[in-house]
Design a protein around this nucleic acid. Structure first.
Lengths: 380, 380
DNA sequence: CTGAAAGCGCTTACAG
DNA sequence: CTGAAAGCGCTTACAG
């Protein structure tokens, strides 16, 4: 059956694809893409050094030459090779992002924020991870950080509060900015959000709905944002003259199971709360799950509020009233700090900036059972 | 009050932190870390070339010299600078990961999988993103890809099915491996999972519980895994001799709202299904949300199954019966492919590998209302 | 099996 | 304001 054989042959061919159809051959590919600074210099009839000056925005170049260089670079589609630049000078044009637990829902937003800042400045973002539970953590960190050729590292919780990581970074001479650190603020530049204010606003929202017995599920005390959220809650209660029942304040671990457990204790209380403010969304989901398991309808029998505005917050029923945390903005600001610092090579002292949160009212909060809502959430 | 002033001064000092306490000065930092291949060569009393050979695992080095080099490198804590290596040779020791929508929950796992493979091979992972909705997409891609100096790129859905991206990558001569591509398999090496088999198994689980009116919420038809999941569903139904009611098969978009909408149609049917198999977790959450809104208890009145085993699947109530997708493993395999290819610089044809999924039975599935469960889910 | 030389594509002092 | 030279730390042919 020559026909069948021929067909079989054809199919074998089809199954032997090109590698992403990369250009004819490896050699040719590299030749094709090698427009170097020399070519630009020749076309603009200036020295290589002048091209370098123009492209790096250095001063003291005659406007006429600058234009010639810019045009030549554009016409030739010249892109400086990052590795050549980092080889020759002190900057690598790369910053690193140290990944945390991948199940944390905001990693993606955070990376994207950092990416935005990087792109804007011609930087690239390297992702790394460490197993903080390893026994030879110090050795692992040493080995990782000394191979890293970056202009700085972005640290999110809980890595930014891990002394082993900070020490290893210091030792390797790698600069870092911590996002929402728990403490030790004078150790590096930081970027944070006004969690305290946001928690205050959320508590005021619940109070405005008419709630008085409001429970609070805190995060780990070691976590800085966690403490500030609790502070904001207490302050808002105090501002309204409502006493906080300490039996209604519980510490969770920012995890789903800990939300489950906290709710289990809170909702089986004789005088149970009419609202629970969980200080992150994942714990809020745990509270809702427990409420539903106990036959309490949310928000009819119990209002639940979260914090973070994780993507899931809008994907559950009832959708979660929460606080939008400016994750992407914080990461972008942190990356900007690192990049600016690398450019100046000295510059001003590290800063501590704080960005704003936003209240997101959805379906999981409502007036308490049998109560008519008070005039408005903002009534003083 | 000299004491108070002194104290105030101290506090100002504290608020002016070092930048991550990076070594004394920038200059010194670079000096400190510069153990080069020359130092290793001197200590081992061999040529630089020999050190390079040993460190790159090239053959033809006398065992004695090899040991000397290894020892010297270890004693000196020598780490070759990536940028120097990529400058000199054809490899960059970096692969790129093209981010998709950050709200997709598995990005983190996927990156971590790729990272594992990279670390093992001395590679680094660069993260990039593109705005596929930009009008000047082609230009943006051209500009991004030509500045990228990487040994390959990892593409996850839907990027791996975006012709504009694949074309730009081909043109820039960047190799790529696609994870779970929708089609056009002969265009690159791919890594996939056996979604068809897994969907078959999940459907069998539902059939085994006694369900017969089983609805299926498909993903977008363009998505390859989506089609295969539907195939697996149909095959399992056919294998048991149960006819598929086409009114119970709906196409969603792998998003929460589309799950909401599909469920709205399915659950208001006169003869509504007793089970819904949504082909991803996010849509399954939408189905559960709608069921609860309509007053149907899950799993008492309706069983719901998902697909992916996203972190959220275990964080909702009832927790979601689903299929664990080997995200990290697929990404690691894809990275391995790219790395192996860069090492060989030619090597065998691209492969198409497939990894296994796992059924995760949780709380959202149960026997249909008023039915006693059949003997076992695996009854043929 | 081993090494001396050249070169990758940029930026940095250093002169003018 | 501009340029010629040296050099970053490796790997690649090329000899032996």
């Amino acid at each position: 059956m020559p026909g069948a054989i021929g067909h079989a042959k054809t199919r074998v061919e089809e199954l032997r694809p090109a590698w992403g159809r990369a250009s004819p051959s490896r050699e040719q590919a590299s030749v094709v893409s090698s427009v170097t600074i020399i070519h630009v210099a020749q076309r603009a009839a200036v020295s290589v050094k002048t091209v370098s000056r123009v492209l790096n925005g250095e001063p003291y170049v005659r406007e006429e030459l600058r234009q010639r260089v810019l045009e030549a670079a554009k016409a030739l589609r010249f892109r400086p090779r990052p590795s050549a630049r980092s080889m020759a000078g002190p900057r690598s044009y790369v910053i690193a992002y140290l990944m945390t637990d991948p199940s944390v829902p905001y990693t993606g937003q955070s990376q994207l924020g950092a990416l935005t800042a990087c792109r804007r400045a011609g930087y690239h973002l390297l992702v790394e991870s460490v197993d903080t539970s390893a026994d030879d953590l110090a050795a692992e960190l040493e080995s990782l950080f000394t191979t890293l050729d970056v202009d700085g590292m972005l640290l999110t919780p809980p890595h930014g509060d891990n002394p082993a990581i900070l020490d290893a970074l210091d030792q390797a001479g790698i600069r870092y900015v911590r996002i929402a650190p728990g403490g030790d603020l004078d150790r590096s530049a930081t970027v944070d959000a006004d969690d305290r204010l946001a928690a205050h606003a959320m508590t005021s929202h619940l109070l405005g709905l008419g709630h008085r017995r409001i429970a609070f599920v805190a995060g780990p005390a070691a976590h800085g944002a966690s403490r500030r959220r609790l502070d904001g809650f207490r302050q808002a209660m105090a501002d309204r003259g409502v006493a906080v029942d300490e039996a209604l304040v519980r510490e969770g671990a920012f995890t789903f199971p800990s939300g489950l457990e906290a709710a289990n204790q809170l909702l089986t209380l004789a005088d149970r709360p009419t609202a629970v403010f969980a200080s992150n969304d994942v714990m809020a989901l745990g509270v809702i799950a427990t409420a539903q398991r106990l036959g309490l309808a949310v928000p009819r029998d119990l209002s639940v509020a979260g914090f973070d505005d994780a993507p899931i917050a809008a994907m559950v029923w009832p959708s979660l009233t929460t606080v939008r945390h400016p994750i992407a903005e914080m990461a972008a600001a942190a990356a900007d700090l690192l990049i600016a610092r690398a450019a100046r090579d000295a510059g001003p002292s590290p800063s501590h900036s704080s960005m704003h949160c936003e209240l997101i009212i959805r379906e999981s909060t409502a007036p308490p059972p049998g109560a008519r809502p008070s005039p408005g959430p903002d009534r003083p």
